[in-house]
């Protein structure tokens, strides 16, 4: 059972790790200094949360001894993050839409995990929700500002939304592990968050004067370890040092 809980923690942490890594690419390249600082903050929070999940997972796991083994030394198919977190920083519109669509999910998830009967997971969720409330406020405000800004910004935001939208459903699709952990009172079945998620997201998008895209094909596979083409490149950066210089202290 402990090993199963570890796997669940890793699944939770992987979304934070990969999105944190993606945002880290932007540090120093933001559209304004203030935004640069804010995005880096979000990246820092997500990586901090990753560490909390992975440190706890390392205690519970049969397979890993420490957080860095989990973060850096798995094969692509062992990462369990959703595809949304892997999407590239095509431009600020894509970055902020991706962030908003994740933050809304993340907030609902953590709100539920605050009721976990696993005391440590509950503590992680309780600490993280404070950060994520801020992330959501930031990304939501920017989605509204840019959707309802200029003609150019509206077009860019609509294009980004159309691209990223199909990755939302995966966030809310339960893995077997989600269902099992929900049954034990430890975790959350994200299917239960679905209705509220789409309701909240759509209300913000309407406020931003953006059109909700049609549900076409929904991306999936991340939670089963099947990733997008972007993912290998993320790992080659992420794992570069640990793979090139194995078994060393940094």
């Amino acid at each position: 059972m402990k090993n199963k809980i570890a796997k669940y923690l890793i699944q939770l942490g992987d979304n934070c790790l990969i999105l944190g890594q993606r945002l880290g690419e932007l540090c120093g390249h933001g559209p304004a200094l203030e935004i640069d600082i804010a995005l880096t903050n979000i990246s820092l929070d997500l990586l901090g949360q990753t560490r909390a999940y992975f440190q706890y997972a390392a205690e519970m796991s049969d397979d890993f001894d420490n957080e860095d083994q989990i973060a850096f030394l798995r094969k692509s198919s062992d990462y369990r993050n959703c595809h949304l977190t892997e999407l590239p920083n095509t431009d600020f519109a894509h970055t902020i839409i991706r962030q908003f669509l994740f933050d809304q999910y993340h907030q609902l998830l953590l709100t539920d995990l605050m009721n976990s009967n696993d005391e440590k997971l509950k503590a992680i969720a309780t600490k993280s929700i404070k950060e994520v409330n801020y992330h959501l406020r930031f990304s939501k405000d920017w989605v509204i500002r840019l959707g309802d800004g200029t003609e150019t910004s509206k077009v860019k935001m609509q294009e980004a939304l159309n691209t990223v939208w199909r990755y939302t459903e995966e966030l809310l699709r339960p893995s077997e592990l989600d269902i099992e952990m929900e049954g034990l009172g430890i975790g959350t079945n994200p299917d239960q968050l679905k209705e509220e998620y789409f309701e909240k997201v759509k209300s913000v998008l309407q406020f931003a004067t953006l059109e909700i895209p049609e549900n076409k094909f929904f991306g999936k596979g991340g939670k089963e370890g099947v990733h997008t083409e972007h993912f290998g490149y993320i790992l080659s950066d992420l794992q570069y040092m640990q793979r090139t210089y194995p078994n060393q202290q940094w």
Binding site: G28, T40, L238, Q242
Partner: peptide, 27 residues
């Protein structure tokens, strides 16, 4: 910033991000 995505451990990655963010704050 060139090394943020390739920092060798989570601890180092977070410290480097925070440092580069401080530089933005100084700016």
């Amino acid at each position: 910033g060139n090394w943020i995505t390739r920092a060798p451990s989570l601890r180092r990655k977070v410290a480097l991000l925070a440092k580069v963010q401080d530089e933005a704050g100084h700016g």
